[in-house]
Computed example of a mutant assay.
Amino acid sequence: MNKIIHIYTDGSSKGNPGPGGYGIFIETFFSNSYNRKIISQGFRYTTNNRMELLSVIVGLEKIENKKQNIVVFTDSKYIVNTVQKKWIYNWEKNNFHNKKNVDLWKRFLNLFYKHFVLFQWIKSHNYHYINDYCDRLSVEATQKKNLKIDYVYEKKL
């Protein structure tokens, strides 16, 4: 039996831009075993789309072995459409000319090419218990002390 990995993600910002955070729930199924990881982090000043994308990136970074079968569940049409409609390949070909969050999209692609990743869109705030949990994690992360700095975003200001 192959290992199957599900990564549930959500990102948020209070104000856009404003304090932001992400929440991630990773579950791994292999043979008769089941493992999970829960991750969240807050940032002092960022955007919702950056946090949505960073949640996917951090989730993928936690997968140590290459060429894994991964399904990413997200409520972000920004991410799902970019990948499923193959916009990302044209963006990359054009060196992300006039695109936002270039630093994160490049970081994402390095991880995306290492695995077999599918994206599944989930309607937000629609009583999907894991998506709702990730939403709560992302919001709570914005309220923590010692928020991280999104250096790339803040540098542009």
Results as ranks from 00 to 15, higher is better:
Ile5Asn: 08
Tyr153Asn: 07
Ile57Gln: 05
Asn16His: 03
His97Cys: 09
Glu61Pro: 03
Val139Trp: 00
Asn32Gln: 03
Asn101Pro: 14
Pro19Cys: 02
Asp103Asn: 10
Tyr8Phe: 15
Gly42Tyr: 00
Lys145Tyr: 07
Asn35Ala: 09
Ile63Ser: 06
Asn126Phe: 13
Phe29His: 13
Phe30Asn: 15
Ser55Asn: 08
Asp103His: 04
Glu64Leu: 10
Asp150Thr: 11
Glu140Gln: 14
Asn98Phe: 11
Arg136Ile: 08
Lys67Gln: 14
Gln41Lys: 15
Lys148Cys: 10
Met51Gln: 06
Leu53Phe: 11
Gly18Tyr: 05
Phe108Glu: 00
His6Glu: 13
Tyr133Trp: 05
Leu54Tyr: 06
Lys156Cys: 04
Asp103Ser: 06
Arg44Glu: 13
Tyr127Leu: 03
Lys67Ile: 13
Asp132Glu: 15
Leu53Thr: 12
Lys93Met: 10
Trp121Met: 02
Asn126Gln: 13
Glu154Val: 12
Lys67Glu: 15
Val152Glu: 15
Phe112Met: 03
Lys77Leu: 07
Ser31Ile: 03
Leu147Lys: 05
Gln68Ser: 15
Arg136Asn: 09
Lys77Val: 01
Lys144Tyr: 01
Ser55Ala: 15
Asn94Val: 04
His125Glu: 14
Ile5Phe: 12
Lys123Leu: 09
His128Phe: 08
Lys156Trp: 05
Ile26Thr: 09
Val117Arg: 07
Asn48Glu: 00
Lys62Asp: 12
Tyr127Glu: 09
Ser124Val: 10
Asp132Val: 01
Gly20Lys: 02
Ile38Tyr: 11
Asp132Thr: 04
Tyr89Gly: 01
Asn98Gly: 01
Ser138Glu: 01
Leu60Tyr: 07
Ile122Ala: 14
Leu157Val: 06
His128Val: 06
Leu109Asn: 03
Ile63Val: 12
Ile38Val: 11
Leu157Lys: 15
Gly59Ala: 04
Asn32Ala: 01
Asn126Asp: 15
Leu137Ala: 07
Asn49Arg: 10
Leu54Pro: 00
Lys155Asn: 14
Thr28Asn: 02
Asn32Trp: 01
Lys62Gly: 01
Ile57Lys: 01
Asp103Met: 09
Trp91Thr: 05
Leu137Lys: 06
Lys66Ala: 15
Glu61Gly: 08
Trp121His: 15
Glu61Phe: 12
Ile149Asn: 09
Ile24Tyr: 08
Lys148Ala: 14
Val102Pro: 09
Lys62Gln: 15
Gly23Ser: 02
Tyr8Thr: 04
Val117Tyr: 11
Asp150Arg: 07
Ile149Tyr: 04
Ile5Thr: 12
Ile149Met: 00
Ser40Asn: 13
Tyr8Cys: 12
Ser76Gly: 07
